[in-house]
Write a protein that binds this DNA or RNA. Sequence first.
DNA 1: CTCGGTGCAAAACGTTTGCACGCGA
DNA 2: TCGCGTGCAAACGTTTTGCACCGAG
Lengths: 144, 144
Amino acid sequence: MNTEETIEELKKIVKQKGLKYTEQREIVLNILLNADEHLSAEDVYNKIKEQFPDTNIGIATVYRALSFLEEVDLITSIAFGTDGKKYESNSKSHHDHLICTNCGKIVEFLDEEIEKRQDRIAKKNKFKITSHSMQLHGLCEECQ
Amino acid sequence: MNTEETIEELKKIVKQKGLKYTEQREIVLNILLNADEHLSAEDVYNKIKEQFPDTNIGIATVYRALSFLEEVDLITSIAFGTDGKKYESNSKSHHDHLICTNCGKIVEFLDEEIEKRQDRIAKKNKFKITSHSMQLHGLCEECQ
DNA sequence: CTCGGTGCAAAACGTTTGCACGCGA
DNA sequence: TCGCGTGCAAACGTTTTGCACCGAG
């Protein structure tokens, strides 16, 4: 799914919910769609000030937009340690994360067999899964 | 590994490092060893005030003890959402978590095949894994 | 016109730190 | 005795909230 498609999706969702379509929500989503790394709320805020210097936006709005976008499932957050939440857009295909505990580097991966087994485990425990995250923590090649 | 054994372990580690053995560290470890759920720093603090009302302990000390115990690998932390870190003792055998997003219930599970695959993935990406956490988020049977 | 969304600043929250004191080795 | 560990309170960074105003529908 590309940027325009996802932004159309946002417009549809907002309309469907009887909410309002605002430039700020679009900008936050846009930043995330075009980021190739995981961004914290403050990262997003800084990028907006950098890329859209004419837009006057508050950090509170960024938080509100991120919560909203996560709620409607256009973006996902992962949290590890005390570093707070980091966000990424859902237009990327599903994957899990390898996280370097020293430099914070994140590597994405996907393993079909693990995905299948996760479903099976959920079913066995009668859980209805909405999302999952798997994080392997350790030291990346450079930090060992 | 039972409570006394683990506390002996702590004594050994402390001595080995030339550090001091204090009642507070023992209490924090003890709480975690006898908890059958995952506890936040504040949970631990409250339990201490409840179970050891004579001991005057500060929340800062709980945090320091938890960090210390995690560092020497007697306890582990998992973080999910904004709820901050939660701790559990390592005397339990390794497992992953199913988390109900509605009631917060946590179910533990273990899948050998997934464990094996995680190691393989780490190796492929040249990561040296220190820990990992896999969390499946969804609704438990009662909350669906 | 309405009322949901915004910006701002203040508050809240969980966690960490500086300091003087106390206690284990 | 020495210096690590502690309790307290203040500081910290991140996130949320109250409020008056703004602007999309």
